[in-house]
């Protein structure tokens, strides 16, 4: 705090330079552990004579990555996965949040559904995959159904919990002033439950992204799961590792750059800090 204040006193140019240097340092700090990891990997690779079916060098992975990117293959596979998770998240929010409100507002409905939702959460989406394959075949519909199922349960559940946790006094206050149901949803339930909804979305995305990859492995109709599982059949370790890195990076980007900022924002603005 005082350091930045001192810096700003030195003039705007210096301040900008200082910020840029700070950011560079932070980026280096994030990248350094990965550099060490790659070095260790390379050292292990060089010291033991691995067959290319077991482990390949980081350089080979880089070549595979460059190849997949330059031929547009990576973009296509990643696009399929991202579109699927995006669509599933959107649909789950559109359906799950109103459902959570409807259930959460009523004390009896909430009590009745809690156990059922827990039970559904216990049966992971991927366990329904065999049935979905019988119903919808090896299609994108199967994958979408599985991912939506995985995402929607935590969203409904957490929305419900969020609504239940809103003190009744707020609802009563607005009602006594003659607010309509819609007004209650807009001014009490939505802001009050938002932190909880985002928690549900984040958890759902964690489950959903894995369910998506697993479903793609078995449905084999494109997507990053298909990419890495297909590469398995041909023993292309370089492609598998490339795919894993892309899957990890995409998830980190979605989680850290989209969901976490929303979570921080909602908690800072409306929520009580959890714990």
């Amino acid at each position: 705090m005082s350091a930045s204040a001192a810096r700003s006193a030195q003039g705007l140019g210096d301040h900008r330079k200082g910020l840029a240097a700070g950011r560079l340092l932070r980026d280096l700090k994030i990248l350094l552990p990965f550099a060490v990891l790659v070095a260790v990997w390379w050292a292990i690779y060089l010291s033991v004579d691995f067959s290319p079916q077991v482990l390949v060098s980081p350089l080979a992975v880089w070549h595979a990555f460059a190849h997949l990117v330059s031929h547009g293959v990576m973009a296509e596979y990643a696009n399929t996965s991202l579109r699927m998770i995006g669509l599933a998240a959107l649909l789950s929010l559109l359906v799950g949040v109103p459902m959570g409100f409807a259930v959460g507002i009523n004390r009896y409905a909430a009590h009745a559904l809690e156990g059922f939702l827990r039970f559904l959460q216990g049966i992971s989406g991927i366990a329904w995959l065999p049935l979905a394959i019988i119903w919808f075949g090896f299609t994108h519909t199967t994958t979408l159904v599985i991912v939506i199922y995985t995402l929607i349960v935590p969203i409904v559940f957490n929305t419900m919990i969020g609504v239940r946790a809103i003190p009744e006094a707020y609802t009563l206050a607005l009602r006594s002033l003659g607010a309509s149901r819609l007004r209650l949803v807009k001014d009490v339930y939505l802001p009050g439950a938002l932190p909880s909804i985002v928690v549900g979305l984040r958890l759902g995305m964690g489950y959903g992204w894995r369910a998506l990859i697993a479903a793609e492995m078995l449905v084999r109709k494109g997507g990053l799961g298909d990419l890495i599982f297909g590469a398995r059949t041909f023993g292309q370790i370089d492609r598998i590792i490339t795919g894993m890195i892309v899957i990890g990076c995409l998830y980190v980007v979605v989680d850290r750059l989209i969901i976490q900022p929303i979570e921080n924002l909602t908690i800072a603005r409306w929520g009580v800090l959890r714990q």
Partner: peptide, 18 residues
């Protein structure tokens, strides 16, 4: 911590093919 964030993102089923 950056390593943990990354490996947590690919924890579980993603490792299966490898």
């Amino acid at each position: 911590s950056p390593l943990v964030v990354f490996f947590n993102a690919i924890s579980g089923i993603v490792w299966l093919p490898l």
